[in-house]
């Protein structure tokens, strides 16, 4: 293996580096194509016609996205309310209270739960949960059902993030707490929660990011009606399910509107990412 200077290898490396650079920056390629296909919609409609308008009937040239945006936000918020605190308490349990033997079991099962595909959750929701709710709260598919399924899906990520955060607590801290004979509740509330609030917030943000982006499981249980939900159990439609449902037959202008939905989604998520990053950076300083 010669280590001599080889000009071709230089060029080869530069070329490969360029390829690597291209793919590292592929989000910009993604954005470029999204804007290319969805920009037309953005330019030719006004905010009051789309973001704050509530009628979506593409065949009549009505493109009100407001119900879908509301649907996405509501279902993510609700699933966070269900899964967020739950995953935090579970993480604390794993970290502090759980006996060693059960720890590995919890870990393994959580890993498996994490890897279950979204369609399987959707299938379970459609066949088990919807018929349970339908007689009580017709039609059974709606905001609440979607939130439950979504909560189950974002639970493992929250758990893992919070456990990772808890594991960064310096050991001296916990030893000191134990030596003072502090109760678990006290440890959680006064020590951990106070200092790591910011990091937990980031964990919650991560869960919301995942929730907003989920499509399949929500598609199967949300009812897909374009409306502002008038009750907890009303059917709704989210930005993601809107894209999934209408993409296959959308014509020109309708199609650009769906790409615009995609842009909106990336926009939301980018904002959430930025918020979580600035929080992290502030904390580190």
């Amino acid at each position: 293996m010669s280590l001599a200077h080889n000009k071709t290898e230089d060029y080869l490396f530069k070329g490969l580096l360029l390829v690597g650079l291209l793919f590292s920056l592929s989000i910009f390629v993604v954005l470029f194509f999204l804007i290319r296909s969805g920009g037309h919609f953005f330019i030719s409609t006004s905010i009051s016609e789309t973001l704050f308008f509530d009628q979506w009937f593409p065949s009549e040239q009505l493109f009100g996205l407001a119900p879908m945006i509301t649907g996405s936000l509501l279902v993510s918020a609700l699933s966070l309310a269900l899964a967020g605190p739950f995953s935090l308490i579970l993480a604390f349990f794993y970290f502090y209270i759980c006996p060693l033997k059960l720890k590995s079991a919890l870990n393994i099962f959580m890993d498996i739960f994490l890897s279950i595909p979204s369609v399987v959750f959707g299938l379970w929701g459609l066949v088990v949960v919807v018929p349970l709710l339908a007689p009580l709260f017709p039609p059974g598919q709606g905001l609440f059902t979607a939130s439950i399924i979504l909560a189950m899906m974002i639970l493992p990520i929250g758990f893992k993030t919070f456990v990772a955060t808890l594991q960064t607590i310096p050991n001296e801290c916990l030893l000191a707490a134990k030596s003072c004979n502090l109760s678990e509740w006290s440890v959680f509330k006064d020590i951990i929660f106070k200092s790591y609030k910011r990091k937990f917030f980031v964990g919650f943000l991560l869960q919301v990011t995942r929730a907003i982006g989920e499509t399949m499981a929500v598609l199967m249980v949300c009812g897909n009606i374009i409306q502002y939900p008038d009750s907890l159990f009303a059917p709704i439609r989210t930005l993601t399910t809107n894209i999934a449902l209408e993409m296959s037959y959308a014509t020109d202008f309708h199609r650009t509107s769906l790409f615009f939905c995609g842009l909106l989604l990336i926009g939301f998520i980018f904002i959430l990412l930025l918020i979580s990053r600035t929080d992290e950076m502030k904390y580190e300083k």
Binding site: Q55, F57, S59, E60, L245, E246, Y249
Partner: peptide
Amino acid sequence: EGRSTLELFLSYLGLKNSQIKPHLI
């Protein structure tokens, strides 16, 4: 939308899609 079964139904009833209030689509 986009389904001709829908268009047929609407023209039979003499309604526009925005007048229909469904529970499931």
